[in-house]
């Protein structure tokens, strides 16, 4: 059976402000989807809604994984069901070593029925696997002893997210701008790593502004989000076009969505000032 993550007519609000206005998207296991769109269009919101962020309220529509209602699940249940998101800005957890964090996370995700307090994966076994994965990703072993994202550079945070993707081996992964803030070499490395770990092995939803991350992960579908809706879907050539020419064509073609997008951006700017 091919796993399917299905999003139907999804509406999401933050506070009383609607952000997503009817998103439809079907990810089959093994497919790679690129999600592009200008700032404020709602791309990260979709990712956070898929993970179940408490601040993002689904007002209507559905998300299902192999027919099961994802919206009924707590964020950790979603992770254990095989849904993952690489954060654009992952949180630091001072005092908690990457290796300890990952050992607990990996145990919970691999043994979804594990109860609190039950044994974790044996330390030796885990260390060996972690070391192999880190070598493969060309990461310094020192990384495992550092505190989760604490004092990490932008690039290190993104690499840490990719390492987590590698360890947790989800069925579906949302990668939220895993290329932002990285230099060209780092983006290439990230692109290769993601291809190695996830391309055609998971269902990938890659949120990006550029086509570099897609170099080694050619998308089967490219979606364009504007004003909280997917306004256009195409193949990888659409991603190339948007990367080269920007969103002018899209903005002109969908004036209503563009107006909503501008409104959201203006409100965001206002809130930032206040």
């Amino acid at each position: 059976m091919t796993h399917v993550l299905k999003i139907e007519d999804l509406h999401v609000s933050v506070g009383d402000k609607p952000i997503l206005r009817g998103v439809n998207l079907t990810l089959n296991h093994g497919e790679t989807h690129a999600l592009m769109g200008p700032n404020g269009s709602g791309k990260s919101t979709l990712g956070l809604a898929i993970m179940g962020h408490p601040g993002y309220e689904v007002t209507s529509g559905s998300i299902t994984l192999d027919g099961k209602d994802v919206l009924e699940m707590a964020p950790d249940e979603r992770a254990r069901a095989g849904i993952f998101m690489a954060f654009q800005r992952p949180m630091a957890i001072p005092g908690v070593k990457m290796a300890d964090f990952l050992r607990h996370a990996t145990t919970n995700v691999r043994r979804p029925d594990r109860k609190e307090g039950e044994e974790l994966i044996p330390m030796r076994e885990f260390r060996k696997e972690l070391r192999e994965k880190m070598e493969h990703l060309r990461m310094d072993s020192e990384f495992a002893r550092r505190y989760v994202n604490d004092g990490f550079s932008g690039g290190e945070m993104k690499r840490a997210e990719i390492l987590q993707l590698a360890m947790l081996q989800p069925k579906f992964a949302v990668l939220d701008e895993t290329d932002s803030g990285l230099d060209a070499d780092a983006v290439r490395l990230a692109s290769e790593s993601i291809a190695d770990i996830g391309h055609q092995k998971m269902g990938l939803l890659i949120i990006t502004h550029h086509d570099k991350l897609l170099e080694h992960n050619p998308p089967d579908f490219t979606h364009v989000m504007l004003g909280g809706r997917l306004v256009e879907t195409g193949g990888k050539e659409l991603a190339e076009e948007l990367h080269q020419h920007g969103y002018d064509r899209i903005r002109k073609a969908y004036p209503d969505a563009e107006a909503l997008n501008q409104k959201l951006l203006a409100e965001e700017a206002e809130e930032a000032l206040a």
Binding site: M51, H53, P54, A74, F84, P90, M91, N108, V109, Q164
Partner: peptide, 14 residues
């Protein structure tokens, strides 16, 4: 922080 850890499979308590 709690949400981030939960996205990695930790229960709220954990």
């Amino acid at each position: 922080q709690i949400f981030y850890a939960r996205c990695r499979g930790f229960t709220r308590k954990e």
